[in-house]
């Protein structure tokens, strides 16, 4: 019933105890580990052998220090061409060499189109409006990315889809988003809130929230950067 090996108290490498006394046990094989041989991955203890390979993009939100983004080579990129290709779902991202993002774009496109076409009740109008907005977003996004590539800025697979990690490491964006979406959908489902009544306010509210978040991210980024430089010194 319980195949999971429970996690022993997490190792504290600075802790007391002799060199050979095990301070932790591997999650996979249960081998005792002293403070030299302890390896951790996402706050779970492993031995050298069972330490999982670093996952790059999937752990955006939990990994405290994401792997440095591999920069995508840029030569002869045309932002205008990227814009045109960006109107075709996923193609703009592929043009920019971001296959992960292309997949995400395709998925979101499918989702948006199906929502707009399906019987989604009061939400239908919102989704119908969302379709052109989304297509233009993809085009503009491809254009911006192409420009960044021309400028030689480093970009990872998922640039601008998950803006939170680099910008605001401390802000619980995902949880807040989940809760907000959950509350909105729940209220709509229960008929307590008509989303189509909110449409007139949706634009401004979205802008305010986005602005607030960006402001927060900027400020946070500054202080984080200064902290890092302090620590380095």
């Amino acid at each position: 019933m319980d195949p999971e090996n429970p996690l022993p108290p997490a190792a504290n490498p600075e802790g007391e105890g002799s060199e050979n006394k095990p301070v932790a046990f591997c999650r996979s094989c249960g081998k005792g580990l002293n403070k030299e041989s302890v390896r951790t991955h996402r706050e779970v203890v492993y031995c050298e052998e069972h330490l999982p390979k670093q996952e790059e993009a999937s752990s955006q939100w939990s990994a405290p220090n994401p792997a440095p983004a591999p920069s995508i080579p840029s030569s002869g990129v045309s932002p205008g061409f990227a814009f045109v290709l960006g109107l075709i779902p996923g193609v703009g991202a592929i043009y920019n060499g971001q296959f992960g993002k292309a997949v995400v774009h395709l998925l979101i496109t499918a989702l948006v189109c199906s929502m707009a076409g399906g019987h989604s009740g009061s939400l239908e109008t919102v989704f119908e409006m969302l379709v052109p907005v989304w297509f233009f977003y993809m085009a503009i996004e491809a254009y911006q990315t192409a420009k960044k590539r021309l400028a030689g800025e480093p970009l990872d697979e998922f640039s601008s889809i998950f803006p939170g990690q680099a910008a605001a490491p401390g802000f619980p964006l995902l949880p807040v988003l989940l809760i907000a979406l959950g509350v909105i959908f729940l209220l709509d489902n229960l008929g307590l809130l008509r989303i189509n009544q909110l449409i007139p306010y949706a634009g401004p509210i979205f802008l305010i929230v986005l602005g607030a978040y960006m402001l927060y991210a900027r400020l946070r980024n500054h202080s984080a950067a200064s902290e890092v430089s302090h620590e380095r010194n």
Partner: peptide, 13 residues
Amino acid sequence: GKPLPGRGVSGGE
């Protein structure tokens, strides 16, 4: 103060 499992509900469960 017993050690806790990494996940409360295992994959099998």
